[in-house]
């Protein structure tokens, strides 16, 4: 079987509001890889993710998801890709008029043929996996705490057992125990389903525990790309500041 990369980005540039946010950026993620993306606040991580999902226009370059360029694909193919991907947005983006359980069931109802009973038990299982209880399942998004919103959004991203999962800061706003549970959950899913993960995070613990590879975005480009320990050794001043600043060191000392 030819190894089609899960995600392939070549020479991507994106301009927003007359400013170049991403500049000639290239990145490839193989199937089953767990890749973390780091970068300063406002460096364009979310922009990169949204461009990969086809939500923002590109100025130049190509993005292929599972070997398919989204902008040239037929609507049927885009739908097929949509079934195999799950995305979680930074703000959660839960559908506000549906309950948490209905939010998780929504992609199932759209894409799958199955009974209500099965969808309900799978949805509840997903919610349990991310640490939400049965009583939370019937709440509306407006009635959730910040961390619960994150978990519900994660459950919805995982609803279809997708092959690729895109996550934008999944652990920010979670307490350390919950963040640890998240790490375990993602690793379990990877073991079970062979999940490919593309995750934006500032959480050094999560990077360490989950990601095979870490890419660093700085000034619109990927300045470093490799296993966590290689990035820690990097001589790039920004990376040094990022990983070996007070907070980064505190994490390393702790282990």
């Amino acid at each position: 079987m030819a190894a089609v990369p899960a995600i392939s980005i070549a020479n991507l540039s994106v301009d927003l509001g007359g400013r170049r946010i991403l500049d000639d950026l290239s990145l490839e993620v193989q199937r089953g890889e767990m890749v973390g993306l780091v970068g300063a606040s406002g460096s364009g991580k979310t922009v990169l993710l949204r461009t990969m999902l086809g939500l923002l226009p590109k100025s130049a370059g190509q993005v292929e998801i599972l070997g398919l360029p989204l902008e040239r694909a037929a609507p049927r193919e885009v739908r097929a890709i949509g079934r195999r991907c799950g995305a979680m947005f930074q703000q959660g983006a839960l559908f506000s008029s549906l309950s948490v359980r209905e939010n998780v069931e929504f992609p199932m109802r759209e894409y799958l043929d199955g009974s209500d009973r099965m969808f309900r038990s799978v949805a509840l299982a997903k919610l349990r996996m991310v640490g939400l209880s049965e009583s939370d399942a019937e709440k509306l998004p407006a009635e959730l705490s910040g961390g619960m919103t994150k978990r519900a959004a994660l459950a919805r991203a995982l609803a279809l057992d997708p092959e690729i999962v895109f996550l934008d800061e999944p652990t920010s706003g979670l307490d350390p125990i919950a963040a640890g549970e998240f790490d375990t959950l993602i690793r379990n899913l990877h073991d079970m389903l062979g999940l490919t993960l593309f995750m934006i995070t500032h959480d050094l613990e999560t990077l360490n525990a989950v990601c095979d590879r870490v890419a660093a975005l700085h000034e619109g480009r990927i300045i470093a790309d490799g296993p966590m320990h290689a990035l820690l050794q990097s001589e790039h001043p920004w990376l040094q500041a990022y990983f070996r600043g007070e907070r980064g060191r505190a994490v390393q000392w702790a282990r």
Binding site: R117, R120, S121, V122, L124, A125, M129, E134, M192
Partner: peptide, 18 residues
């Protein structure tokens, strides 16, 4: 072994209909 967590999460598998 790796599938145990899914079955664990599904444990009360048939959730009561609301």
């Amino acid at each position: 072994e790796r599938n145990a967590p899914i079955f664990a999460a599904l444990d009360p598998a048939t959730a009561a209909e609301p």
